[in-house]
Amino acid sequence: MDVLINVFVALHVIGIASLLGGFLTQMKAMGAGTARFTPAMLHGALTMLVTGVALVGLNQADDQPVDNVKIAVKLAVLVVVLGLVYVKRDEERVDKALFGAVGALTTANVFIATLWT
């Protein structure tokens, strides 16, 4: 079971990298007002959602403790990010504040995951 959990953790990190990497590569475009949500950002958010739900289920099945409040907060933040990216995915330009909010929320989700004990 540990190997399966670690595989899903690795996939979860890949999803985070895709979402946050898509944001970071467009920081200059965000300053110019031409940033847009890329398919990699959408797929990264979806990967985070699927692997995160799988991780909760696998950890509970393995009788490992799961902090449900932490998971609920992370899920709420991710649903907001996923909703923003999904709704605005076809727009040629995304507002600076909206694009920045997605980056900030994604970064906040990383800090929630690592610092909340």
Rank of each mutant, 00 (worst) to 15 (best):
V7W: 13
I14F: 10
D2V: 13
I16E: 03
A29Y: 04
L49Y: 03
M27H: 09
V69E: 09
A101Q: 10
Q26L: 06
L4H: 09
V79H: 02
F111Y: 12
L78W: 05
K70L: 13
V85I: 15
F8Y: 13
T114P: 00
T47A: 13
V73I: 15
Q26K: 05
L49D: 00
F99N: 01
L49E: 02
L84R: 04
A97W: 09
K28P: 00
L58Q: 12
V73P: 04
E92T: 13
V7K: 07
N109I: 02
A54Q: 05
A54T: 14
N109F: 04
V73C: 07
K88W: 07
F111M: 11
G31S: 10
F23C: 09
A113M: 07
F8M: 10
V3K: 09
H12F: 10
T51R: 01
V80D: 04
V53E: 02
S18W: 08
L105R: 06
G44E: 02
A97H: 06
E91I: 05
G44K: 05
G31R: 11
D2L: 14
N6Y: 13
I14G: 01
L20P: 02
G83E: 06
M41A: 05
G103H: 05
F37G: 01
V102Y: 02
G52C: 09
L19Y: 02
A54G: 09
V3Y: 10
V77C: 06
N6G: 03
A108N: 02
V110T: 00
A29F: 05
A108F: 12
L46C: 08
V66E: 09
G83V: 09
F99M: 04
W116L: 06
D63C: 11
M48A: 08
L75F: 14
L24S: 10
S18H: 02
T51I: 08
H12C: 07
F111D: 02
V13D: 01
V7E: 08
L19N: 01
A45L: 04
G100A: 08
G22P: 02
L46Q: 11
T114I: 12
N109D: 13
E91D: 14
Q64E: 14
D62N: 15
L19Q: 01
G52E: 03
L20W: 07
L19F: 05
L20E: 02
M30C: 11
M27A: 13
D90A: 15
T38D: 04
T38N: 03
D63W: 11
G57I: 12
I71S: 10
H12R: 05
K70S: 10
G31T: 09
V53I: 15
V3N: 10
Q26V: 04
M30P: 00
M48R: 03
V53T: 12
V3T: 14
M41F: 06
V81S: 01
A32L: 14
V94C: 03
